[in-house]
Amino acid sequence: MEHYHMNLTLKVWRQKNSQASGNFDTHSVKNISSEMSFLEMFDVLNEQLIESGKEPIAFDHDCREGICGACSMYIDGQPHGPWQKNTTCQLHMRAFKDGDTIVVEPWRSKAFPVIKDLVVDRGAFDRIIQAGGYISVNTGNAVDANALPIDKKKADDAFDAASCIGCGACVATCKNGSAMLFVSAKVSQLALLPQGEPERQSRVLNMVAQMDKEGFGNCTNTYACEAECPKGISVANIARMNREYLGASLGSED
């Protein structure tokens, strides 16, 4: 792949804290390598800001290998930028060309308040998980891994659902700010396996109730979430959650 250098203009959202109103700041960065990641480019920009005595831009990042889901940036109108099935840390600067202006915004959702600059509070996801994203396991010796037969297809589907990294891109891109792809992945992952059976009904009811409480919007099946999900989580999971919820709400006596 051709290696080149570029000069860029960045339009970045700056916001002091959750109460402040915030605005866009324009910065320019020079001589950026096409082999850098987007976050490395931000590191260069922050070095530049620190050297000139300015406040560096706050952004979330952790593993920088595409598996933690921390790097939430809405880049040029898409979560995690223009590449498909990709996180911001895995977005490389070869996605851009010399002279480009790039707009970077935080996730926009009532349920994800901005803490500072590009950092949002995704605690709403944690509270949804606390509401039902668990299984009960007896104490004592660990059960032998192969003691419980599980259909291969179901194991694979559960694994696919479990690959959700909780980054929030689904909420960020959804025109309704709906969290259904995330919640359905977490519901599916456990509903497909025998270990999830004891809490199967209460799980889906409680997680959906918590999701509604957090102020997320409602799904209208545009499937933007699936298209933008860095892990390619399928909307078939949303259909599964709908089935689980319909069954649980009609059948449960609680």
Partner: peptide
């Protein structure tokens, strides 16, 4: 659904991920 995003995006490209009529 409108209230779920009080502050809109400055730059947004929904045409990259969904059909206009579904939105």
């Amino acid at each position: 659904n409108r209230d779920a995003r009080p502050i809109k995006y400055y730059s947004n490209k929904p045409e990259k991920n969904s059909t206009w009529y579904s939105r």
